[in-house]
Design a protein around this nucleic acid. Structure first.
Length: 264
DNA sequence: GCGACAG
DNA sequence: ATCTTGTCGC
């Protein structure tokens, strides 16, 4: 699996080859998840805005339903355009391997790809939960699925897998960001360059409270066909008041519903 | 051998 | 990720 990740990283493009303007994907109003998920408004309204697809996973444990089923990964994909949900899709696949840091894509990737295939719209950008280039072999789940489907993708993680921030990330104001550079644990592809360690992502403070409890920053990184700098701008545009980008919040909520609805 | 480690 | 109510604070 490690060698496959090296191949995927080599095939990945950590630069902007597909011009996705952050202004074109900006979301102003956060969805109100209190009254359930917003209805999919797949109107035939021709829009030129990019289709951003947020994906997330939830899990269904063994035979909690008494059917003796095995553990499954349930993936949810939510397509958003102009800040409006245009389609929901989900898929479930049995869990083959346990969670191992660095091998997440092999545990959750199958169901994620299946959910994407169940979508009728073509994604212009994939927003994954987890890392992309911030990975031991620069092939986190965002890079993994991005390369396999050859679609621009980025990863949004809530904690740092590897790499080191240029500056301390404690108690930073909203909008703050700092580069994450490869450390010794990263088997850098261009290990020859030497001099300065490559920037593999950024720590980004998407939300912060004035006084009380502190919020940890997000760790964003390129998946495929997007640069580390553009990723931060895209995530900033996709956040509408909450810590997580809207596509991710929606996919997270839908995954919870899907794990009880999809199947059985 | 010890430490570190997305979801 | 998941098992889970209340609770502290803006």
């Amino acid at each position: 699996m490690e060698s496959l990740q090296h191949d995927l990283a080599a095939a990945a493009t950590f630069a902007d080859d597909h011009n996705i303007a952050s202004e074109a994907v900006a979301i102003d109003e956060p969805a109100d998840l209190a009254d359930g998920l917003p209805p999919a408004r797949s109107g035939a309204d021709a829009s030129d805005a990019p289709v951003v697809v947020g994906v997330d996973q939830a899990f269904r444990t063994g035979d909690s339903d008494g059917s003796g089923g095995s553990d499954e990964a349930v993936s949810a994909a939510v397509a958003v355009r102009d800040g409006v949900v245009i389609e929901y899709a989900s898929a479930a696949t049995p869990l083959s391997i346990p969670y191992v840091p660095g091998l997440l894509a092999f545990r959750e990737g199958e169901s994620l790809l299946a959910a994407l295939d169940a979508l009728s719209v073509e994604p212009d950008l994939l927003v994954c939960d987890g890392s992309g280039r911030i990975h031991f072999r620069e092939a986190g789940i965002a890079t993994h699925v991005g390369v396999l489907r050859d679609v621009p993708s980025l990863g949004v993680a809530k904690s740092l897998l590897c790499g080191v921030p240029d500056e301390p990330t404690d108690e930073r104001p909203t909008g703050w960001r700092t580069p994450i550079r490869a450390d010794d644990s990263v088997e850098t592809i261009e290990a020859l360059a030497g001099a300065t360690a490559p920037v593999i992502g950024h720590a980004y403070q998407s939300r912060q409270y004035p006084n009380s409890r502190r919020v940890n920053p997000l760790y964003v990184s390129p998946g495929h066909r997007v640069s580390a700098e553009t990723v931060v701008d895209l995530v900033e545009a996709l956040c509408a008041g909450y810590k997580l980008p809207e596509p991710t919040r929606l996919a997270d909520a839908y995954a919870d519903v899907a794990k009880r609805t999809d199947g059985e």
